[in-house]
Design a protein around this nucleic acid. Sequence first.
RNA 1: GUGAGUAUAGCUUAAUGGUAAAGCUCUGGACUGUGAAUCCAGAUGAUAUCGGUUCGAACCCGAUUACUCACCCCA
Length: 438
Amino acid sequence: MGTTLAEKIQSIRGMNDILPDETPAWQFVEEKLRLLMQSYDYDEIRFPIVEKTALFKRSIGEVTDIVEKEMYTFDDRNGDSLTLRPEGTAACVRAGVQNGILVNQQQRLWYSGPMFRHERPQKGRYRQFHQIGVEVFGLDGPDIDAELICMTARLWNELGLSGSVTLQLNSLGTPASRKVYRGILTDYLQANKALLDEDSLRRLESNPLRILDSKNPAMQDMIEKAPSLMDHLDEESKVHFSRLCTYLDSVGIAYEINTRLVRGLDYYSKTVFEWVTDKLGAQGTICAGGRYDGLVKQLGGRDTRAVGFAMGLERLISLVENKLLEKHAKQPHAVLLMMGERAQNSGLAVAEQMRNELPGLRILTVCGGGSFKSQMKRADKSQAEIALILGDDELENNVITVKYLRADRDADKSQQEQLSQSQVIELISGLASRNKNG
RNA sequence: GUGAGUAUAGCUUAAUGGUAAAGCUCUGGACUGUGAAUCCAGAUGAUAUCGGUUCGAACCCGAUUACUCACCCCA
């Protein structure tokens, strides 16, 4: 027609809106997570989304893919190089060190929020995605490693995912033992250099352990025969690992030892683990973590042992069965129809009074007027249990008509009645508390 | 970053190179204060963008953009 369409501005690639019909699922999972953290007595910490670029370079590792090509980095107005956080651990450690909460004490912390990586989007992988992370400082035993894994296993159980996920476990050893192994592995890879693909050749110098992770079928045979990290662990790491396995056995958590599990970030040592699923296509890791005993010192803090993990919320939510989420779908307890000008004038006040009386009440007002029929349609669509009808008749007699929208039509029960406002409040209060328990 | 597939109404999808359709949704009515069933009527599109081939393009070709999936990487 006459109007020219302005150019539509779209969201940034890989950064998605979470729409009203999806937020109940998010809230459901977020609430489960909050209660989970509470039940282990972990404390929430919050830190900024933007940090100095150097923080991530120093912690994640200069030669990792994340730092080399996936960070959203830009210059601040004063020339500082800043970066949208690609993960939470580095910033959590920075916040802990800066505020002096890691010195001579134990901290069990969790955080959640958006992370940013400039990758090509695909199923389960986005440029802005959400993680919940847990970090524990000042504890060096395998018992706390086990506790973190217990925590995640409990969550799968509560979300009905136990059958869809498996735990992969490995130890990367202490930095010293890893250095020795790295030498042995490099020798082996050098001897088989002819079999390496382009990526692996590049990593031969920078990060040879990552070559073990390769999915290239042509290299599998060579990787199978490579010396195993497990066989070259120092005594300390061996004991740590076997005790962790014992703990897991004793709480009945099944695991698979995967000696090729290396993890992408440089700061890990000893325990590393991943929960994986085959139900999400190519992005099958929904939770991953490990021990990073050297990172706090590396970022300028006192030498402090640490262990943690992170979960991808998008992946988690897409795994949770719709059935489970539907139960959680929210709907108003009551919907208020206002017929005519007089009713509209007093209707909002009536709704306000009801909210005063019943703080947990969800009551939807059919704003915008319209015919009785159209208001009833909107009331029905709201999924509310009952409709409260306010019109001239009701105002005249100082009552409210209550219509039971979900009543069985064939039943002999009355489907509509007129009640005083206090009777209505009593009625709704019953509905509201019943919903809470159901 | 590499590769493949897709792009038509708010949504889901039709349409031999020849008038752009249907269902859902929405609005109104049948039923003047009673929804969810049924029936009737109505609203909504530069067929992603730009260019080319053609008498004629939603359809064929090219480029661009976006989305999807995979590689890679990872939560």
